[in-house]
Design a binder for these strands. Structure first.
Lengths: 204, 204
DNA sequence: CTATTGTAATGTGTTGACAATAGACCATTC
DNA sequence: GAATGGTCTATTGTCAACACATTACAATAG
């Protein structure tokens, strides 16, 4: 193979979705912000079709809420009870992933996770907290994907997004890196119980 | 009020989605069946636009799987491990709903649930098992919606759909009605523990 | 005969124009 | 003055045509 790092090709819609998610999570588009299809189409230099697709997708993810003929707007934060339920569900999924993965990670998997951790530290040094959030998510997503593929990612993703909507503040820098390093170290040591504990401690 | 039964207005897309879900769950469109946008558009007398929206929606629900430029097809059954995880997650959600609802159901809520049970029995008598499945789902959906609104329904729905894909066979008639009646009776008696137990017994 | 490359056909992605709807604003009435 | 009704505008929903990607098949070279 010429290069071992696969350059990921993202569809147009995925890129737009990614951008909008960033805007929402960063707080640039606070809850109740209305989305105008025509406006967005012009911003991204596309027609309304693909924009509509993205809006539909983000609605299914729970980031947006849309009503018939009334357009879409950024969803509001969850009431505490539902928030707690979602945390519980997300923990169940990540616990499953960790358990499945224990002992089945290749050296390359480990290396890639180390790489993600490194960029996490880097983003923290730069105080780019929107990027920190994205990398944080990608660390977990890597594990979820390895354990259950796209299917599992699809059911997991909405929980993460909804939780990020609620907690915009970032936990202390060192804490964030340390928590993820703890997960990785436990996985490397093939200590399933410790890994599960570390993950649950990180999800809150 | 003129009539106590609200006539539900469904958008065009919701109706199409409903129809396609029926086709998939009933086994008329088994896994790997490819969906042709133009074909579907002609079948429903619409253009491809709304059809594409529906396909996107069902993909997010996990019923379909679609790849870029390659179209969508009916998703295959889950591997057993993921199936078990999904059952666990769905049970968590329904347990939450029951607990929230306990003691908070109005007489009208009870009456509506009784109505759903009646139509369930009716469909069983007619041996219309596709309809049975839909009513079964609507019974649960009613509870979920009352407990957590549209938001909770949106995260719950995919689990139900994926599970229905796996278990197409219907449980014995009397068993199906009895299990749901047990849930309702426990709710009427405001016996939260019994209701939770009954729900968990019903989800498998 | 096999493997590779070019080509046609099928189907998806995108677009811009048109139709329908919701919300705002204003006039009218009681 | 508050409530009802009717327009008007902005925005969403729908459509038909076009641009592009993918697949399958046929032609060619080795």
């Amino acid at each position: 193979m010429a290069g071992n790092r696969a350059t990921k090709i993202l569809s147009v819609k995925d890129q737009i979705a990614e951008q909008l998610r960033s805007d929402i999570i960063s707080g640039e588009m606070p809850p109740q912000t209305k989305l105008n299809e025509k406006e967005l189409a012009e911003r991204f230099g596309l027609s309304r079709g693909p924009i509509r697709d993205v809006i539909l997708q983000l609605t299914k993810e729970g980031l947006l809420i849309s009503r018939n003929n009334c357009g879409a707007s950024v969803n509001s934060v969850l009431e505490p009870k539902l928030q707690r339920l979602m945390i519980k569900l997300r923990r169940s999924i990540e616990e499953y992933a960790i358990t499945e993965l224990n002992g089945n990670l290749t050296d390359q998997n480990i290396a890639e996770l180390e790489g993600i951790l490194a960029s996490l530290e880097d983003a923290l040094d730069r105080e780019d907290y929107t990027e920190v959030t994205k990398i944080d998510i990608s660390f977990h997503q890597y594990l979820i994907y390895q354990a259950g593929g796209e299917e599992l990612v699809n059911i997991w993703y909405p929980y993460v997004m909804r939780m990020r909507l609620n907690y915009k503040r970032i936990t202390s820098s060192s804490e964030c890196v340390n928590e993820h390093r703890a997960i990785l170290e436990a996985l490397k040591a093939q200590d399933s119980a410790a890994a599960v504990k570390a993950v649950k401690h990180n999800i809150k």
